[in-house]
Design a protein around this nucleic acid. Structure first.
Lengths: 395, 395
DNA sequence: CGCAATAAGTTCAACCAGTAAACAAATCGT
DNA sequence: ACGATTTGTTTACTGGTTGAACTTATTGCG
């Protein structure tokens, strides 16, 4: 039940189509866009003019091209166009990033500090300050902000459950937007893995459907289907951490038994690797320690990672069997460990995915590393501008 | 990267919008459609006129309505409009159904006969004959046909793998459309569970996202997300039968271990229930026997079904955790057994779905019973007509 | 050097679909 | 019977795309 379509929405759609074409193959020309989209050159010219006047697209010198004919004026996404602000709250750091319209990361600040047990308002005040610093650091109009949170998020801006922060049914959007330094921006919240998956999507042109598995203290997932994020009816999709690996396995925090988190969660890996878990090691240090040990070929660690990879592969195989995806991407804290995980994951996928014989499912590490979520959050705002440029120009 | 939008596509979109509104709230009037869609009465009138002339919509006598004012002319989907032909090949029967534009089943024929081991060409000749009989039985224009097959289906009309029929990499569309009695119709193939899920969707207005689990000899699933079927990149989605229940469980036909099919597949249930599996009982008889035994409260059968329900629940919980769905529907041979399965499935969902506390996930039997796939296949054709009515009228 | 060939971008009349507002038609309430 | 009220149609207008002619800028060739 989409709304009615007036001429205006038609124009908006075509405007987005043209902008998308500029982004897809930079630099282009009006003529090439007309060719690619099927619109006439006249229409494309009119639309491009609006985009140029709105500072979303820049005209650049003609790209030298062989053959006769008038040279084309190059068109590129404007680096001065509206940019996106990405923010992230995680267990052991806060982060802010600005991504411009071209997709370039123009600003990135990470503030390492354990956030567990801190009062939410304090955390959000820090986030607001990071946001203000980001805005001041770049000379760009910001189209909006998006906050990545490691937990279940409601569409209304409510954090339903962020176990590793100890948050539950907490309004985050309110305190954030009323914090002292907050730059007034349209803001949304989303799950950390979802945004990281979107970040990954923008770095790859090949795969339009994949499973992004994000290792943090728990395990989350972002599911990208045909170039779009799957959110679910309530926005609670991606809880892969509590997929069952063994019906009668160890009891999980969530109350059920044999959840993936009990096999491939950070605590489980540390336990199996024999790393003393006396004091709760900050998550980033724990990961660094694992990389160190695995790099030194410590047998316990390597086999712990192989076991985790096997569990991940079992869960991922189930997902791929269900959704028929193109690839599996390991992100979050799995990214630096991917070297020791991939083989096991790939093996399970090969044996358990029914269609692996016809089209094998590649496994790889996230391209953006541990910064995927912030960058993805900023990129998500940019994607929105690109999808609805009409609100950023005056016809 | 959708195509360009010309004025024509705008018109097509609005035509579909109006037709959809007629289907949503029968009977309606031009004025109510204008209200609901946001189009002007003038536009709606013009579009309705096209639909009426194209025999997709009928004007009916004014529905008596209190209050002053000129009475509205009622508008309903025409029962004489283009209908859909659904076909199904299954292990122990062939079936054909015709569903008209209003969604009514106008013809249904099921031919019980074991199809295992038969030559594909013979089977397809029978299907073609069923199709011809269906066409002759109703006096309706047929918009197209859709064939439901219990297996992995390629977009090109290739059956990649239908283990229970013993088919593999087999062209089905070719032999079918060149069979002697075949009525020349645009035809597509799809997975049986997918089409059954679509059938279920059209019977329910409440849930727009659900998991349809179809028990046949194997176990398939159709995933409906926000009112649309999830097909996957190759069209191979829904293979829930090989989701892992226990990493070190019994070895499965597919080569992996602990697949759901080893716990809730028909053979597994029969084995656990202690039904002698000496000769391979035809699938329908086996199910009837199980219903009989369970109805008589045979303890082995009841506990076998509870165990199967538990396994189904574990798998379904994983899916719901991942995709955030509204409901789980039991179909195929699970439908008649739902009474003995639901409780266990629901229990597992309640404990294993992370968000069950906020919004519990209901479990129910498929509304269309074992005929869901044929009827759903026919309905899928009708849905296509409804979504793109422009090709059925001349502007 | 000059001129045809070629391709890019612009201009302009025509067209198509939707809008807004006035108008005609059919019923209810008093 | 007559005004109020709601439905549906007619008509002049608007916004956006089209198609074809036209201008501009470059290459290549005699």
């Amino acid at each position: 039940m989409d709304g009615p379509v007036r001429q205006r929405s038609l124009w908006q759609h075509n405007l987005a189509l043209v902008l998308g074409e500029v982004g897809r193959a930079e630099p282009t020309s009006r003529a090439r866009i007309a060719q690619a989209t099927g619109l006439t050159r006249a229409t494309v010219s009119a639309l491009v003019e609006v985009l140029v006047r709105g500072r979303l697209v820049d005209e650049v010198g003609p790209a030298p091209r062989g053959g006769a004919g008038r040279p084309a004026t190059g068109l590129v996404l404007s680096p001065a166009g509206p940019a996106g602000l990405g923010l992230e709250i995680n267990v052991d750091y806060l982060a802010a990033a600005v991504v411009d319209l071209t997709g370039a990361v123009r600003h990135l600040e990470v503030r390492q500090a354990d956030q567990r047990g801190r009062a939410p308002d304090e955390v959000l005040a820090d986030v607001a300050e990071l946001a203000a610093r980001a805005r001041d650091a770049v000379d760009l109009p910001l189209a909006g902000a998006r906050l990545a949170v490691p937990g279940l998020v409601d569409a209304r801006g409510l954090v339903r459950l962020a176990p590793n922060l100890g948050w539950r049914d907490l309004d985050v959007l309110g305190p954030l937007t009323s914090a002292p330094h907050w730059p007034g921006l349209p803001t949304e919240i989303d799950n950390e893995a979802n945004l990281a998956a979107l970040g990954e999507l923008s770095t790859t042109d090949r795969e339009r459907s994949f499973l992004y598995v994000s290792g943090e203290v728990g395990i989350g997932a972002g599911i990208v289907l045909d170039g779009g994020l799957l959110r679910g009816t309530h926005g609670w999709s991606g809880e892969i951490g509590h997929v069952t690996i063994a019906a009668d396995g160890p009891t999980c925090r969530c109350g059920a038994r044999g959840c993936l988190e009990q096999y491939a969660g950070q605590e489980a890996i540390l336990r199996t690797a024999g790393v003393p878990a006396g004091e709760p090691l900050p998550a980033d240090l724990a990961v660094r320690r694992l990389v160190e040990l695995a790099g030194a070929a410590d047998p316990a660690t390597v086999s712990a990672l192989a076991a985790a990879g096997t569990a991940l592969g079992i869960a991922a195989a189930g997902v791929v069997n269900l959704l028929d995806l193109d690839a599996v991407v390991l992100g979050g804290s799995f990214a630096p460990l991917a070297g020791w995980l991939c083989a096991a994951v790939e093996r399970e996928l090969a044996t358990r995915v029914l269609t692996a014989a016809w089209s094998p499912v590649p496994v790889r590490a996230c391209a953006l590393g541990t910064r995927a979520a912030v960058v993805g959050a900023a990129g998500a705002v940019v994607r929105e501008v690109q999808a609805a440029p009409a609100s950023w120009v005056d016809g």
